[in-house]
Design a protein around this nucleic acid. Structure first.
Lengths: 197, 197
DNA sequence: GGCGGCGCTTGATCCCGATCAAGGAAAGCC
DNA sequence: GGCTTTCCTTGATCGGGATCAAGCGCCGCC
């Protein structure tokens, strides 16, 4: 196990690569995505400090992971990590907990992609990102958005124009405020109303 | 651990219930879905014989599971199963393998929901269902569809009309054939062409 | 300073799939 | 048999979000 650094836009691992490593993020934000051969892209999630990458037991990575910001992480060799696990059985349990939590999150996101309208999707994204940030940085109304508009669109199954228009409208309505590299949440209740639950 | 039976349309467990049990299906088909308070529904998957249900370690079920056909399953008490796991550590590993495979499937389905057009979604569904059936029943061009059109729509993020029209067109074009309680695949290559990879 | 590039916004128009609306076919039930 | 119910199909129309098309603002670079 050793520390590794990644520059913004660099790749941790790619869709189809042999899954030889396992990472835990210590700083920065990572984009996880599945690319279709014709260029369409689905971002299945964003990883933050504390998150694990590549903990699946599939022989190859199903998705690509690349850095949105400077990233620091701990890299483990897959085989050595598995040996470590044999000595510490509760580590396996921890891995399964993380994986099954990820599965629950993935299922919730399927609802967003399959059944939510554009405005609801953007509200869901802002609120979920905000919640995750709170757990890492404590409560702040200001959320940094290290991902670009196109990334948000590719996460939500929308186009960049729809994301941009929705955020622009909320800025006009004083629900959010434009700040450098992010937004400030002025009226979280309004966003929750949009979701209707 | 003991065997349990479920009638069609009966519920194995519901979204929000305390996750006290764990099942492995021995026969029948189960529908797994997440329901929004306003009635919109996303079917996150269908379970077949051999599949595990409720292997997540979250304290409550995030989804509802109900039987589409008569179902037989083995039910395990959550706590007892966990004790069993402490004695057989490789069982934990197996659980994690299953969960991380499910996660990979969920991520692929996000691409379908977020970035595929209607026709591609239906083709993806037929081909994936066909593949799963092959593993259970061996190779047959005839695939039973225990789920209704509305279920397929709720799985693919479409309306029942779009699913019905797409299948109807493929029947006219002799790509599939209408058979009682399912379809027969006449030209799998055409369906793969629709997906374009 | 001027220039280019990139990411984002904004407006105009289009179209795929949703919605609305009948109608048909099969199964269950009296 | 006749009735209801449920599921599916088919047609007509609509609309949300995609697409097409500029234009803007900022940053880095020469």
């Amino acid at each position: 196990m050793h520390h590794v650094n990644f520059q913004p836009k660099s790749t941790l691992f790619e869709q189809g690569d042999e899954a030889g490593s396992l990472y835990t993020l210590t700083s920065g934000t990572v984009r996880l995505h599945y690319d279709l051969p014709d260029g369409r892209r689905q971002i299945v999630g964003f990883a933050m400090p504390g998150d694990f990458l590549g903990l699946s037991l599939e022989p190859r990575f199903g998705i690509t992971a690349d850095a949105l910001t400077p990233v620091t992480a701990c890299r483990f060799d897959r085989h050595r990590f598995m040996n470590l696990i044999d000595k510490h059985p509760n580590l396996m349990r921890k891995m399964h907990e993380v994986a099954s939590h990820e599965l629950a999150i993935a299922q919730e996101h399927m609802v967003v992609l399959g059944r939510r309208r554009a405005e609801e999707r953007v509200a869901s994204f802002l609120l979920k990102w905000w919640q995750r940030l709170k757990r890492v940085q404590g409560n702040t109304p200001t959320l940094p958005l290290p991902m670009g508009r196109q990334d948000i669109a590719d996460h939500l199954g929308l186009t960049i124009e729809t994301v941009s228009r929705t955020l622009a409208r909320w800025m006009r309505e004083r629900i959010i405020l434009d700040v450098p590299d992010g937004v400030r949440i002025l009226d979280a209740a309004k966003l929750e109303d949009v979701l209707g639950n």
